[in-house]
Design a protein around this nucleic acid. Structure first.
Length: 492
RNA sequence: CGGGGUGUGGCGCAGUUGGUUAGCGUUCCUGGUUUGGGACCAGGCGGUCCUCCGUUCGAGUCGGAGUACCCCGACCA
């Protein structure tokens, strides 16, 4: 698939949707633009949550929860922020239904109109800062480091499973600090957490960088991002961390008394990743046979498929499998024995491949006699015969090697599709082929906007930890001087 | 909200210049044979052809309106 799609981008969309649905991850809901996350898909999300939580806690962040509804007036306070969000929101105007006096069904009770409309949160900055105001008096109250796992709603015009749904699940961290430096450092630390998670848990190579002013979060001073490349060469913003300066503190009047007893506005950050990460996972590693999951996120790491004729053989093989399962589970592996006797082995193989299970163990009568198993790895689809003795160690090695391999594969693909470009004519052509273009940029929003208008390409980031090319040059569009190259791409 | 497309058993589709009992694949159910890469045979269940109006002796097919969904744009994690 991967090779196909780079050439035929229009089919990539279909491939992705089919994969999501067939792998039993999610489906379109009857509610416009929303999705149903099915148990198998949700299990992957839960794994992501666990891994992220672990990392958040290591940085001192604690989980909390704030209301779903935000009074409309809260949005009037941060002008820039509102410009970015207020337009595409679900609004609650009434609080009661009544039987339709004219016929069947129910209607909204006109008597039950709310004095002030409530906005279903598109993000929680406004309500959280209204709350933090009451929590913060002195420098001793700082920093506040909270994260919340929740759903948010943005009334998107066009939606797509996992990548852009009207309602989605995410985490949003919101921190308050006494100094600018501390807040900026926190924003940087959290994008580091995301990069670590993407690389080491999702096996996803990402570029860490700053967003250009045009692409910044509404109300932020600086936005840090992790950018990934999908198999069709498009960019996907996989996570962001914002340094908000004192903008929100000033809008919501959050001040603290510093050590000298003077009032100061607090410094803020916010950072989030969403179920979009599921989309990144699917589009980065998936192939023609379906999903490819890194073991750290696989709900099932090892699946066992028995091959047998007759009841006796079946029982003998299953006994052996339970034995192996027990041993693997001692090491914390999640193991599933597919003992359904209505399906043939070939069907099961295909099905588990579709679901991306990293390692498959098949045992048939021949194996049972020889004390071996057939071991198959999902990433390369290679099959080898392995001895039952030492199987746990063999599988452990596989589970270590698989993420390394899929990371290397994705990284090689990405690097092969990053190229420098110094001519505007060439740029217009090259950018349509997909991939990242490293180009000089004069640093002005006007130039970026002009390039976007003509090509749909945006500056994905100004990289800080990879593809760093600080060198003198001239802007690809305006010809003005530039000190460094930035990443341009067409994005999701 | 602009531009395109599609609505026919659960799913995927065909249906000729309008013609009689609306087909095919798959799923599902029953029985049997199978089981080392998505099994096979036989039988069976399952459809107000998106809705309404119109044209016609006759509409899945033609016309109009409505509606739903998909794709492309604007918006965006």
């Amino acid at each position: 698939m991967a090779k196909e799609v780079t050439r035929r981008q229009d089919n990539y969309s279909q491939w992705y949707n089919d994969l999501v649905v067939k792998a039993d991850l999610a489906e379109q809901s009857a509610v416009r633009g929303c999705m149903v996350i099915k148990p198998y898909g949700y299990a992957i999300w839960e794994k992501m949550q666990q891994e992220l939580d672990k990392r958040f806690k290591a940085t001192g962040v604690k989980n909390a929860y704030f209301p779903l509804f935000i009074p409309k007036s809260f949005f009037s306070r941060e002008a820039e922020h509102v410009a970015g969000f207020a337009k595409e929101c679900a609004v609650v105007t009434h609080h009661r239904l009544m039987n339709d006096p004219k016929g069947k069904g129910v209607v909204v009770d006109p008597e039950a109109k709310l004095e002030e409309e409530l906005i279903v949160r598109p993000t929680s900055e406004t309500i959280i800062w209204s709350t933090y105001k009451n929590w913060i008096n002195s420098w001793r109250d700082l920093p506040i480091l909270c994260n919340q796992w929740c759903n948010v709603v943005r009334w998107e015009m066009r939606t797509r499973l996992f990548l852009r749904t009207a309602e989605f699940l995410w985490q949003e961290g919101h921190t308050a600090h006494a100094t600018s430096a501390e807040a900026a450092a926190k924003a940087e630390e959290m994008v580091g957490v995301y990069a670590d998670f993407a690389r080491n848990v999702m096996a996803l190579p990402v570029i860490v960088g700053h967003k250009s002013p045009n692409e910044r979060f509404a109300g932020a001073i600086d936005t840090l991002t992790i950018e990934a490349m999908m198999q069709d060469g498009k960019a996907l913003q996989a996570g962001t961390s914002h340094f908000l300066g004192q903008n929100f503190a000033k809008s919501f009047d959050v001040q603290f008394a510093n050590k000298e007893g003077k009032l100061e506005y607090v410094w803020a950050t916010s950072w989030g990743v969403s179920t979009r990460l599921m989309g990144a996972l699917i589009m980065s590693h998936g192939d023609d046979n379906g999903l490819v999951l890194p073991p750290a996120l696989a709900p099932i790491q090892v699946v066992m498929v028995p091959i047998y004729k007759g009841e006796d053989e079946r029982n003998a093989i299953l006994d052996k499998m339970y034995e192996i399962k027990k041993e693997l589970e001692k090491d914390g592996k999640s193991v599933h024995i597919d003992d359904r006797d209505t399906l043939r082995p070939g069907f099961k193989f295909a099905e588990w491949e579709l679901k991306g299970v990293p390692v498959r163990v098949a045992i048939g009568p021949r194996d049972l006699a020889a004390g071996t198993v057939e071991l198959a790895r999902r990433d390369t689809l290679e099959k080898v015969s392995a001895s039952v003795d030492g199987l746990a160690a063999t599988i452990e090695n596989l589970l270590v090697d698989i993420p390394n391999n899929i990371y290397a594969k994705a990284e090689a693909f990405r690097n092969a599709n990053i190229r420098k470009c110094d001519s505007w004519e060439e740029f217009k052509e090259e950018i349509q082929k997909g991939g990242f273009l490293l180009c000089h940029w004069d640093g002005t929003p006007e130039t970026e906007q002009a390039i976007k208008d003509e090509t749909k390409a945006t500056i994905r980031c100004i990289p800080v930890d990879s593809c760093v090319c600080e060198e003198e040059g001239v802007d690809i569009y305006s010809g003005k001087p530039s000190k460094r190259r930035v990443v341009f791409a067409i994005s999701y």
